[in-house]
Design a protein around this nucleic acid. Structure first.
Lengths: 348, 348
DNA sequence: TCTACATAGGCGAACGTTCGCCTATGTAGA
DNA sequence: TCTACATAGGCGAACGTTCGCCTATGTAGA
């Protein structure tokens, strides 16, 4: 069966039939060199007739590139899902294909030897560039890539002093927008369901919240921040602590660092007999596809995923071509999505 | 910057340093040929010292393969998401990497020239095998791959008379299990939120429902099947038609062909003031990560995604190696997941 | 001492391109 | 008629492997 595939038509077959050298065929197909219109037409006709397609493996070897871009992403545990993976993949695939590039996806599990895998991919010539996501403070992969001087772009920032190309969403702005919105609704007791302190993304978002709070003249209290992992149950338990307090002491608004946490908060609010949007306002972050269909629909923050994907790849191409991009640390603005889960403060 | 990368150490560098021919180095690394233990050790030492990694592009050309497997999937429209993409990708990546293979992801948009892209990938030697998903009746890609005799495995079946390797979930069994479960809860008026008739998957599932209904001696009525696209709003509107009927005529259970449709049904039930699980039971299909966190949690059917992915790749490897697998049309059983959204029939 | 075979590793060729240089032919101007 | 240059396309080499065949050396048996 593979015999059929192996005896594919190659440059020499076309050349023979067209009565030229095979190098000339190559020139015509690459649009290089001086070949008469006549000969060009003849060659093109034979190419059509035989259905010639260049062998990309040979091309890769000769051109010293793989026409492949790696994408590293971290899978969520089984009971969760990544709300942006699908759209992000779609967007980078779309842009890459326009340049005849394809995307190699890598799911790096928790404890595998990341660095070795990363090095291996690069040093065997598997990929020409890399897109990284879910990175953290002091991320060893970023350090490794910088040291190897390998073209990469990361979705997300790490340590401020590290100088490399990234695209990120201004999560601080997102949470500032959300907090300001809740303030205009009359909320003064705002609690946050946050992530552990080692998350750069989490700290950025939190900082935006602090800014808005301070600007409104409300003191920042550590007790109004509840940290935990990014899961529905963490959201549930975190929110429970807040919502079990007497009604004049409990927060009127719960700000989730993610839709996942917000869903947990909504569930416990309902279990405690509170009406969401009236007794307590709840907001999320991500605008996951289902968040608009929750009851009540979730007020949240939307990240421009498509744009992030597009610009990541465009940036990466610039780096791969050796051009130094004028702007290689890009911060995009997220958008407040107002729905039903957050409402005006009623009685107090 | 790429200069550094291009001057990577190759077989000849190692050979020179070890004082052998470069072909001998190749033999040692591939574990072939007769090389004395002495020489082997010396070569291995140099490989370590220089950090030699074989150039995969050269290997691909020489070995006539790309060590790449394509995965075609169909992205959902922006307001939806694919509940199984992440897990499926993860599972195929994991198995493929064990065999030194990687996964090339392709998102095929609605109206692009699928067939040409498919042919192109194969004929340029981009990939050695293909995994297909979201296929439909008379799928032209399947026909094309069969004609080209190219190794592929599909997740899902198409026309029964087409003979090719696939893995599918026995959706009929899933809906039969669900229907039987609802029957044991005392439901007799069961309505289905189904997909358009051109979906093979949809028809298979529906068939399982019919089987269970018939076995219980309940006549099949076309009016109890409401067809529509796979979206929350289609579920909402479809369910509305059923639930607006007088209480002694309306269905006591709504069976969604997907969790998405079930979510729509849950929303309209709530909007009509019905208590889900008591006034009306609602079930889904997929066990999307969030379904357990809905209020009430969704009774649904879980597909063994991880197993599908694993076995797809294993099957594909067998086909790629030219072995004819004994079992190449595999049907896996889905599992009923009982939660809160479906309960016993109360008053009637 | 001669033959036969095993052991160790060298060597040419090939996978299918692309790239740079070279040569043969044609044409225009002096 | 001779020179100079443009045009058209041929040719060798290379990218870095793997594979099969060959050869040189060593060893055992007759």
């Amino acid at each position: 069966m593979s015999l059929k595939l192996k005896s594919r038509v190659n440059l020499k077959d076309v050349a023979k039939q067209a009565g030229v050298s095979y190098q000339t065929v190559s020139k015509v197909l690459k649009g290089q060199g001086n070949v008469s219109a006549d000969t060009q037409a003849r060659i093109q006709a034979v190419v059509q007739e035989l259905g010639y397609q260049p062998n990309i493996r040979a091309r890769n070897l000769r051109e010293q590139c793989s026409h492949l871009i790696g994408y590293f992403w971290q899978p969520e545990p089984p009971n969760l899902y990544n709300p942006i993976l699908e759209k992000f993949l779609q967007s980078i695939i779309a842009v890459a294909e326009r340049q005849e590039y394809h995307i190699l996806t890598f799911a790096w599990q928790q404890k595998t030897n990341l660095l070795a895998e990363c090095r291996n991919l690069i040093q065997t010539g598997r990929i020409d560039g890399l897109i990284l996501s879910s990175i953290g403070f002091d991320d060893p992969r970023v350090a490794c890539l910088m040291e190897l001087n390998f073209p990469f772009v990361s979705f997300g920032r790490v340590n401020p002093e590290w100088d490399f190309a990234y695209i990120d969403v201004d999560g601080g702005s997102g949470l500032r927008q959300m907090t300001e919105y809740l303030l205009t609704l009359g909320h003064h007791r705002l609690a946050v369901l946050a992530w552990p302190e080692n998350s750069r993304t989490g700290e950025d978002r939190l900082h935006g919240h602090y800014q808005a709070i301070q600007q409104a003249g409300i003191p920042i209290k550590a007790e109004w921040i509840k940290r935990g992992e990014n899961s529905v149950s963490a959201g549930y338990n975190g929110a429970k602590r807040f919502l079990q307090r007497p009604s004049d002491e409990r927060p009127t608004a719960l700000i989730g660092m993610s839709d996942i946490l917000a869903i947990g908060a909504m569930n416990v609010a309902r279990d405690l007999g509170l009406t969401i949007g009236r007794d307590v306002s709840i907001s999320g972050f991500d605008d996951t596809p289902l968040s608009q269909y929750l009851q009540p629909s979730l007020t949240t923050v939307r990240q421009p995923i498509w744009e992030i994907g597009q610009r990541s790849i465009e940036l990466l191409f610039q780096i791969m071509e050796g051009r130094t991009p004028t702007e290689y640390q890009i911060l995009l603005q997220p958008k407040l999505i107002i729905r039903q889960s957050a409402g005006e403060v009623v009685n107090q």
